[in-house]
Amino acid sequence: MAHLVFDGSFEGFMTLVYECYHRRTTPRIISTEAPKTLFEDSIIDIQTDIQKCERVLTGLRKNLSDRHLKTVYHLFLYDKEEIFLDLFRYIVLGFKNVRLLEDPSIDTVRRVEDARKRMFRYLHKMEGFLRFEELEDGTMYAAAELEFDVLYFLGKHFARRLGNEKFIIHDRRRKRAFVYGSGEFQIYDVAAFKLPERSREEKKFARLWRVFFDSVSIESRRNDKVQRNMVPLLYRKYMTEFN
């Protein structure tokens, strides 16, 4: 049992899987930063290696079905340390016998499926709750602090519906931005960002939206608790109607 440290990249994680098989070791903890205290039993620092990563991926493609393979890719975007160990065990189970990945009474399988669901449920919520503002040059700009690393999925979703627009989705938590224009997109790291002026009409439509939002509520059915359950305060920071 060891504490494994890798660089946080997908390739790094695949290298980690390779090393565990190679060294016949089972991780006890997987993290992206070395522990500060020195009481740890043994710490293995994984050096990301594209060839080792490829070996594991080839194996996964051979053994797992498309759906399970996607689960592995997607779960990596869960982007929280607590999932790494389960993801590792999930891969091990898959190598052992792919049928095991269909059995929800295995804890690892269930936790992985739950995490995947949680992530996509979050994505679905954000597809509704993200708010764009129009900038001077007509670009639509949305800010968010994404809980999971779903920027790519979110960007793709809006590329389908705002195909003729230019837009930016800015994940302020990870300091990255999905930038779309004329049929193409790019994901950039954003170190510092000065937001340009809003367009002349922006204020008017934000105001009209609030007018609408306030007038469709039925006072005799008032129920703040349900509202809070459906749109937790956490989400409201960037939502026009709550600001």
């Binding site: 679905h124 597809e127 509704g128 709750f129 389908r160 519906r161 705002l162 195909g163 003729n164 627009e165 609408f212 939002f213 469709v216 509520s217 039925i218 006072e219 059915r221 008032r222 129920n223 703040d224 608790k225 349900v226 509202q227 359950n229 459906m230 749109v231 939502m239 109607e241």
Partner: peptide
Amino acid sequence: ENPGAIGCNKTSGICHSYTSDGRCVSLLKV
């Protein structure tokens, strides 16, 4: 789900907000 110049449906539907009576706002209902 058929994208156009602007707009594309989502088969599952999307809620964009919830009013203070707890109802989902999905469409500009006027």
